[in-house]
């Protein structure tokens, strides 16, 4: 059984090595691949220097395009499980093997690492939590499935979901939308309680100015996705 960690990286020179070491140490049975989304800092040089496995995108595609590249790679190379894992030190690799076992045992198609199931670790700021709860309710309303952390970027897919994502994945702010897309084709999504850290380096892709765009775009995307059913 082959498993892959997909690490989308955009300007992560300060944390990428730490992330890879975390995976090598705490998730030994996983391979990893870094997707360098045209970083402007030394991320690529650093990866090459240390001989890390890296997919180098020639133009900046944004988080959605980068993650999709990882799923494409995983699918083409015959991996059974692929997990998205942030390169900025927010996620903890020691959960990965437990998550995979859980998926296998319960025959889950997509397993999302949730901060809010056990409410431990970094819980995000108040306003952001409010947004997350709103998306959670919206998804529940449209699909009947409760996802407590729909914006979590830590999610593990089996081959069937990998194939769907390799063909079609939203461009920006993809997490809630891609979960609904999977639910609509009858896949089974569950959540696994994880602790996340506050990001060590880099800034969130969601700045205050963009958050309005974020809310509107993701809401519409979820509604459109529900219409596709």
């Amino acid at each position: 059984m082959k498993s892959l960690v997909i690490i989308p990286a955009y300007n992560e020179e300060k944390s990428i090595l730490k992330t890879v070491n975390d995976i090598k140490e705490h998730a030994k049975s996983f391979d990893y691949v870094i997707v360098n989304d045209c970083s402007m800092d030394k991320t690529l040089e650093l990866c090459r220097e240390h001989g890390l496995c890296v997919l180098n995108l020639p133009v900046n595609l944004g988080i959605g395009g980068a993650v999709q590249t990882g799923y494409l790679y995983a699918y083409k190379n015959g991996y059974d499980y692929a997990v998205q894992f942030d390169g900025d030190g927010q996620h903890d690799a020691s959960y990965l093997e437990k998550m995979r076992d859980y998926m296998k045992d319960r025959d889950v198609d997509l397993l999302i690492g949730s901060r809010f199931l056990e409410k431990e670790g970094f819980q995000s700021s108040g306003l952001r939590r409010f947004g997350i709860r709103y998306f959670s309710h919206l998804i529940k309303l449209l699909t009947g499935v409760r996802i407590t952390d729909p914006t979590s970027g830590m999610r593990m897919a089996n081959r069937s979901v990998m194939e769907i994502y390799a063909n079609c994945y939203p461009k920006d702010y993809p997490e809630p939308e891609s979960a609904v897309a999977i639910l609509n084709v009858g896949k089974k999504i569950e959540e696994y309680p994880v602790k996340m850290r506050e990001r060590e380096e880099g800034v969130s892709s969601i700045s205050p100015i963009r958050s309005v765009y974020y809310m509107i775009k993701v809401t519409l995307a979820i509604l459109v996705e529900a219409l596709r059913k």
Binding site: V35, L55, N56, L57, V59, G65, Q68, T69, L72, K171
Partner: peptide, 17 residues
């Protein structure tokens, strides 16, 4: 076009690897 650019860049990245 943007969809095509995306597909192309992904193919380039995979081939390079």
């Amino acid at each position: 076009m943007s969809e095509r650019v995306r597909r192309l860049s992904q193919a380039v990245a995979l081939n390079e690897e």
